[in-house]
Structures are given as structure tokens and as C-alpha cells.
């Protein structure tokens, strides 16, 4: 059976037009999803791709990541800054996935450390590993999928 990968896109990512100013032109979430599907298909991974602005829904997805998936890629956007999101719940949910020794990679479209990017700090879990890919535009996802695939083959 194919390994199952869940890709979660956090609050606000339904509209990617503001990434134009960082040189990632004409990006839409549909294009990202299409690219991810193609990459997963070529590597033999089955993919579920989702986006939500709602904290409860994101928590649900993370819980499902623990039970139903072999790997997680997450674009959390500004979860650490967004007052509507419970930072601790988010982090501990991600930690639960890393503790199952499943590959987890945080991705961002733009380089979040550049001055103009008003995003956030990277995810910090106290146990387990989280990979980090930021600034390759749509290709951040592609690189992360390949890294997940290689890791799963090794496990």
C-alpha cells in the first residue's frame, strides 16, 4: 500500500496573491495542490491536501495525521502570532506526530526570515524532529515531499 501523506495549509492560505511581492507570482492554492499531487503521484505517495482557517478543524486534521497518515507537511503561516489560534494545542499536536517517528516538515512559500515577510517563528517542538523548508515558492512543497519520500523509504 502507498504511504499516506497529509499536507495541511493554515489560516489565510486560501489566497496567495500577497506572495506576488516576494517574486512568487500568480500563485494560487489550486496550483500548489496540483504540483503536490503530481509530485506525490510520481513518487507513489497517496496525498490528502487541505486548508483551513479554523482552529478546531486544524486540530482535527492534526489528530488524523497521528492516526491515518505516515507523514505530515504543514504550512502553519503565522500561527504563533495569530491570537485566534491556540499555540500550545497546535505545537503539542505536531509533537504527537513527531513522537510517532513520522516525518514532519514545516514549509513556507516565502523566506520567513526576510524583513518584509511578516510571518512568524518556526515551529518549536521539545521532542522529535521537524524539518524546515522556506523560500522556494511552490517548490518548497516539492522539496518537502521528496524529503518525506526518502525518509519513509529508509524507515
Amino acid at each position: 500500500m502507498n504511504n499516506r501523506l497529509l499536507i495541511i495549509n493554515g489560516p489565510g492560505l486560501s489566497d496567495l496573491s500577497h506572495f506576488n511581492e516576494f517574486g512568487h507570482d500568480d500563485l494560487t492554492l489550486e496550483k500548489v495542490q496540483k504540483k503536490c499531487s503530481e509530485t506525490c503521484e510520481s513518487l507513489g505517495l497517496s496525498l490528502e491536501f487541505c486548508q483551513s482557517d479554523d482552529e478546531a478543524e486544524l486540530t482535527n486534521y492534526l489528530t488524523r495525521a497521528c492516526k491515518e497518515f505516515d507523514a505530515l507537511i504543514i504550512n502553519p503561516v503565522s500561527y504563533a502570532n495569530a491570537s485566534s489560534l491556540d499555540f500550545d494545542i497546535y505545537t503539542s499536536n505536531i509533537e504527537t506526530v513527531t513522537l510517532q517517528n513520522k516525518p514532519v516538515i514545516e514549509v513556507h512559500i516565502a523566506n520567513i526570515f526576510q524583513k518584509r515577510v511578516d510571518v512568524t517563528e518556526p515551529i518549536k517542538v521539545s521532542e522529535g524532529n521537524v524539518g524546515f523548508v522556506s523560500g522556494f515558492g511552490i517548490h518548497s512543497y516539492e522539496l518537502a515531499i521528496r524529503a518525506v519520500h526518502r525518509k519513509l523509504r529508509k524507515n
Binding site: I105, N111, F113, Q114, K115, E121, P122, I123, K124, V125, N129, V130, G131, F132, V133, S134, G135, F136, S140, L143, A147, R150, K151
Partner: peptide, 29 residues
């Protein structure tokens, strides 16, 4: 490794703001 998951003195990078992209924590691969 992912420096942001390690000691706090590794949380600041003078390099990140001047590069196009950052990759960390994917091992030697």
C-alpha cells in the same frame, strides 16, 4: 539539523535574512 529545535543560542541566524531560501532538519539528504 533544525537549529530552531536546539539551544536558544542557535535560534538567531545572521544568514537567513540575506538568502532566498532556508532548508534545515532534513539530515545529510
Amino acid at each position: 539539523s533544525n537549529p530552531h529545535l536546539r539551544e536558544s543560542f542557535r535560534h538567531v541566524s545572521y544568514i537567513s535574512p540575506v538568502v532566498d531560501a532556508v532548508v534545515a532538519g532534513l539530515g545529510a539528504n
